[in-house]
Design a protein around this nucleic acid. Structure first.
Lengths: 128, 128
DNA sequence: CCGCATCCTAGTGGATACTG
DNA sequence: CAGTATCCACTAGGATGCGG
């Protein structure tokens, strides 16, 4: 997209880039209940390729949201857990879920109305 | 990305797709102070192509977040304003901005540390 | 077990020129 | 003024096979 000027170094944009990333959010949520191993994550998060899983985990680690721990064992064992910062982000994600659950029906109704031009809405969307 | 199973119809995912979209968020913020015309938006939102602006506006309209009003004048005048739902979403965006401003420094420090393996952090990130 | 390297494709989005 | 149409470049991300 290569956005301009102020968008690049804008704190909100940087956070949005992370929040907007499907896998990142899913992983953060998965780690909510405690540390998880790589394999466990790959199983729980249906449809993620190893490539994306690793890539996303690296990104989260880089941003200080999770900690990667390698246990000196054979076979190797690695687990991931949220940092305090990650926990904090989780709070934001929860707020988002909350909003989503509260308003998703409104959104879906709006879509139906929009996609069926003939159909009259039996209620109106009011401006602010 | 073509995510899986539960991710598709998950309310949070649908909202995240919108929240994660750069232009959508920018437009919502731009409309915070009241209705805006197409041209005004294109000027204020540096770097957006007409294609993306229109496309994003349509998406927001479809989701019931904004209202598009065509005034029967010559030359044509169209303006966009937030719905109540859009206002509500704006609240969520503000929360996000808040979090971003509060924690962006932590994230940036984490990145520096991560990108410079040699450098020792003079503080630690603690697990939960 | 954990993950990296490579290849490859499909969709996103930018630039530009044109129209009701 | 407010878009649409066309073309094209880019890159995210899936598949696969190998390495520590």
């Amino acid at each position: 997209m290569e956005v301009t000027a102020y968008a690049k170094d804008c704190p909100s944009r940087q956070i949005l880039d992370r929040i907007g990333d499907t896998w990142s959010v899913l992983i953060v949520v998965m780690l909510a209940d405690g540390p998880q191993r790589y394999t466990a994550l790959s199983k729980k998060i249906q449809g993620v390729s190893p490539k994306m899983l690793t890539q996303t985990l690296r990104g989260l680690e880089r941003d200080g949201l999770i900690i990667r721990t390698v246990h000196a064992e054979v076979p190797p064992r690695v687990d991931y857990q949220l940092t305090e910062l990650g926990q904090s982000l989780l709070g934001l994600v929860r707020a988002l879920e909350q909003w989503a659950e509260t308003h998703i029906e409104d959104v879906q109704r709006a879509r139906v109305v929009y996609d069926n031009p003939g159909v009259k809405a039996d209620y109106a969307y009011s401006a602010k």
